[in-house]
Amino acid sequence: MKKFLLGSFAAVLILALAACSSASGKDDSGSEDSNDKTITFGVTPWTSTVPPTKIAKLIVEDMGYTVKEIKADAGNVFIGMSRGDIDAFMDAWLPAHENHLKKYEDDLDVTAISYDGVQMGMVVPSYMKDINNVSDLKGKEDLFNNEMYGIEEGASATGIFNNMIEGHGLDLKQVNSSEGGMLAQVKRYTKSEEPVLFFGWRPHTMFNKFDLKVLEDDKNYFEKAAVKVITNKDLKDNSPDVYEFLSNWSIPIDDVEQMIVQIEEEGTDPEVVAQEWIDNNQDKVDAMLGK
C-alpha cells in the first residue's frame, strides 16, 4: 500500500509539472514555444519596403509566430534593431545605409541580399535632353529654381545629396519632405513638361508613372545599390528558424516593382499581393525555408 501511495503521488506530481510546463508555453528544453514568440519588422515610409515585408510576414506567421510591424524612418529602424525592439528590416540600402551599419555594427547582422544592381540618384524627366550627367547641372541650376526635391530629412540619402551638391559645386538647395510630397512636386512639374530635379530609385512606380532618367555621376556619390536584409544579433539565437529563412531571402527587383504597382496604382491590399506572390513562387519560398 505504501508503494502504491508513493507511486500515485509521483504520478500526480508528474502530471502537475507537465500541466505547469504546458501552461508556461515552454518545451522540455526550457525555451519558449515558437507559437508564443513575436517577430517584429521595421517598416520605413517607402513603397519598396512594403512588398518584401508583407511576404516575409506571411511566411513567418505560417511558421507559427506572431508578427508585428513598427513604422519608422530608417534611422529609427536601425536604432530599434540595435536595442532589440525590432528583429528585422527587409529594405536596407547599401551603401546609403552604411553609416547606420557602422554605428550599430556590434548589434546588427547583415543577413541576406534581397536584390542588387539598383540605380538611385538625381533624376530628371527624359524630356530634358541636355541634362544627362550631374555635371550638366552646373550653371543651369536656375532652371530648377535652384532646388532639388528629396525625401525625409533623416534619411541617409539626404546627407549624401548634400555632399553631392557641395562636391559638384552646385548652387542647389535640397528641399526635403515625404516621398509622397516629393512626388507631388514631380507630378506638378512634369504635367506641363517643366524642369524638375529630384531623388529617384528603383524599384518604384515613379518610373511607371513618369518618363525619367537617372543622371550619371562621374564622382560616384551613389554607387549602384544592393538592398539587404538586416537583423538584430539576437535573432539568430532566439529564433534560429526565422533567421535561417531570412538568411536565404532573395527576390527579383522586377517582382518588387510589379507588386508596388499593384499596391500603389491598382489599390490592391498589400497582403493579398504578397500572398499571390507566395502562391506563384512556392519553389522560391521552399528554397528560402530550406525545404
Results as ranks from 00 to 15, higher is better:
Asp91Cys: 03
Ala74Asn: 09
Gly117Pro: 03
Gly64Ala: 13
Tyr115Met: 10
His97Leu: 10
Lys71Pro: 01
Asn133Lys: 13
Ala74Phe: 05
Gly121Ala: 04
Met90Ala: 02
Leu137Arg: 00
Ile79Thr: 15
Thr66Ser: 14
Met81Thr: 11
Thr66Ala: 08
Gly139Arg: 08
His100Glu: 12
Ser126Leu: 08
Asp62Gln: 15
Lys102Ser: 11
Asn132Asp: 11
Asn145Asp: 15
Ala112His: 06
Asp109Glu: 13
Arg83Trp: 07
Met122His: 02
Phe144Cys: 10
Val60Trp: 02
Asp107His: 14
Ile55Val: 14
Ile86Ser: 01
Glu141Gln: 02
Glu69Arg: 02
Leu143Phe: 07
Asp73Lys: 09
Ser126Glu: 14
Lys57Arg: 14
Val118Ile: 13
Ile70His: 08
Trp93Cys: 05
Glu105Thr: 14
Asp106Ile: 05
Thr111Gly: 01
Pro125Thr: 00
Asp130Phe: 10
Asp142Ser: 15
Trp93Glu: 12
Met63Ala: 05
Asn99Trp: 09
Glu105Ile: 09
Glu61Pro: 03
Val118Asp: 08
Asp91Gln: 06
Ile113Tyr: 02
His100Gly: 02
Asn145Tyr: 02
Lys138Phe: 08
Asn76Gln: 12
Gln119Phe: 00
Leu137Phe: 07
Lys103Tyr: 12
His100Pro: 06
Gly121Ser: 05
Phe144Ser: 05
Arg83Phe: 11
Val77Phe: 05
Gly75Pro: 11
Lys138Pro: 04
Asp116His: 12
Asp142Met: 06
Met122Ser: 06
Asp109Pro: 03
His97Gly: 13
Tyr127Met: 10
Ile131Ala: 09
Ser126Gly: 12
Thr111Arg: 06
Val123Asn: 07
Gly75Ala: 12
Tyr115Trp: 15
Asp87Glu: 03
Ile55Gly: 03
Ala72Arg: 12
Leu101Phe: 15
Lys138Val: 03
Val118Arg: 10
Ala56Arg: 01
Val118Lys: 11
Asn133Gln: 09
Ala92Leu: 05
Met128Gly: 07
Ser135Asn: 04
